[in-house]
């Protein structure tokens, strides 16, 4: 065989080897698919419009609460973490009787089931039906539960995916309040 041929074959296999090596390194250094982290383009933005008549017949408009904290919670009656975090929402609502309000929005749920859920688990804050899922999309909700904290002034300051606790939310609230006081 000619040396030229040997060289060609070696060259091609070396090139292939290099490409494949890079490919394996890429696979090796990739972190496992842990799903979407809480990256939300909404943080730092004005809260999307959330307004309507709640299940308890009271009207609610997020714009009317521009001087208090608003915790918007997307939930579903069939979701177990939602059930678990519900007392925490009640707790936070109790702590912030004066300067805060919780709003629950059923996501992937029927009005009837949501009503039953609140009848079972209590909670006197507004529950708004998201008719054509406009809010869910505006907030980029993936799966319940998901919660958004809106600061006085109507800016979304935090997003949680999954179960939350009142303390967790208050940590953010206190943090921001401290910062505001410094200024």
């Amino acid at each position: 065989m000619t040396t030229r041929n040997v060289r060609t074959v070696r060259f091609i296999s070396a090139a292939m080897g290099l490409i494949l090596f890079g490919f394996v390194v890429m696979l090796a250094t990739r972190e496992g698919g842990t799903g979407t982290a809480s990256r939300s383009p909404l943080i730092g933005q004005l809260v999307p419009a959330v307004a309507g008549v709640g299940l308890n017949e009271a009207t609610f408009d997020v714009d009317d609460f521009s001087d208090s904290w608003v915790l918007i919670n997307f939930f579903a009656s069939w979701c177990v973490p939602c059930e678990r975090e519900h007392p925490q929402l009640a707790e936070w609502s109790r702590r912030h009787k004066k300067d805060g309000v919780v709003v629950s929005v059923p996501f992937g749920d029927t009005e009837e089931d949501a009503r039953a859920f609140f009848a079972d688990h209590g909670g006197d804050w507004p529950v708004l039906m998201d008719g054509d899922a406009a809010w869910a999309v505006a907030f980029g909700v993936l799966r319940p539960p998901e919660s958004f904290l809106v600061s006085p002034g109507g800016i979304v300051v935090a997003k949680w995916q999954g179960q939350i606790t009142a303390d967790e939310v208050d940590r953010v609230v206190n943090d921001l309040e401290a910062k505001a006081a410094d200024r």
Binding site: A76, F107, G108, D109, D130, D132, A133, A134, A136, V137, V141, L142, R143, P144
Partner: peptide, 11 residues
Amino acid sequence: NAPVAAAIRAQ
């Protein structure tokens, strides 16, 4: 038939 898919469809 995930809820978020239903939401996107509606939107």
